[in-house]
């Protein structure tokens, strides 16, 4: 096990104080490898919290550059980062918070032909993408590669999250069989989102990641957490593995990865 220095013991003291984390849990965090798909509204708080928590290796997948319209919610990007690669902008802040970690950047959009190679090196994936083709691709790839992940989605004042342990708990496709027709999906610019919603949902995903690594508590598996910030109502809807799920069911009809047509957010990637 890792031998923490006096300074590290201080840095992580509020974790170490937790009976469910302790020095052992902190050591597991230091040895963990987590991939964050999308350094946007959800990915930004996830990246910051995982870096602060001392997750040893964090990968970021994002091919986009920072735009001024991102700054209302994507809190790891600052005004001076406009035009920079989001992955670099996120990495800069993560290393400023915690220079002891390693941050890998993947300037790519996930596709059927590269996703397995990218997620293969990680213990856990945080799915913070903004489009259904990417959400289904991450689900299917994680099921096939048996990599646990946490799904997150936000829209207007609402958010949803679920953690998936392949082979054990319900997957995204158990609930959402296939991407909705592209013309039914409201575009990003049409729908809008309250900035702080991204922080709420991203923090939930970061907490799930830290729980998975340390083994603390019970994961958000076989359940969909949904909230509506307009009245601050949270619900945890029980789910179960569906035997007719096209990817994790008893006779899966999907045996290869699919690049779906992009919906409303036509140009948006991870």
């Amino acid at each position: 096990m890792i031998d923490f220095s006096e300074e590290q013991l201080q840095r992580y003291s509020r974790h170490i104080l937790l009976a469910d984390v302790g020095v052992e849990g902190q050591a597991r965090l230091a040895e963990a490898r987590v991939l964050v798909v999308g350094a946007g509204g959800l990915g930004a708080p996830v990246c910051l919290y995982l870096a602060a928590a001392g997750v040893g290796t964090i990968g970021i997948v994002d091919a986009d550059c920072v735009e001024i319209s991102n700054l209302q919610r994507q809190i790891c990007h600052f005004t001076h980062n406009i035009g920079d690669a989001k992955a670099d902008s996120a990495r800069e802040k993560m290393l400023a918070i915690n220079p002891e970690i390693t941050v890998n950047v993947h300037y790519e959009y996930l596709r059927a032909d590269n996703v397995l190679g990218i997620i293969g090196g990680y213990d856990f994936v945080v799915e913070g993408t903004d489009n259904f083709p990417a959400k289904f691709l991450v689900n299917d790839a994680c099921i096939m590669a048996k990599v646990p992940f946490c799904h997150g989605g936000i829209l207007r004042f609402r958010g949803q999250a679920m953690t998936v342990i392949p082979g054990e708990s319900a997957c995204y496709r158990c609930v959402f069989r296939e991407p909705p027709p592209p013309d039914a999906v409201p575009s990003c610019s049409e729908a809008g989102v309250l900035g702080a919603i991204a922080g709420m949902l991203g923090s939930i995903q970061a907490a799930e990641t830290l729980k998975f690594i340390t083994g603390a508590g019970r994961l958000l598996t076989d359940a969909l957490l949904t909230f509506d910030a307009k009245d601050m109502e949270f619900r945890k809807i029980p789910l179960s593995c569906q035997e007719d799920c096209p990817v994790c069911g008893e006779a899966p009809e999907i045996d290869s990865l699919i690049d779906y047509e992009q919906g409303g957010c036509a140009l948006a990637g991870a």
Partner: peptide, 27 residues
């Protein structure tokens, strides 16, 4: 419930139904 079976799937007394919304945003 399979989308094609909404018309012939009946909801009866004491059933529990959840409408689960697709949420695609993340950026």
């Amino acid at each position: 419930i399979d989308r094609q079976r909404y018309r012939d799937t009946l909801v009866v007394d004491r059933d529990e139904v959840e409408f689960l919304y697709f949420m695609g945003g993340g950026r």
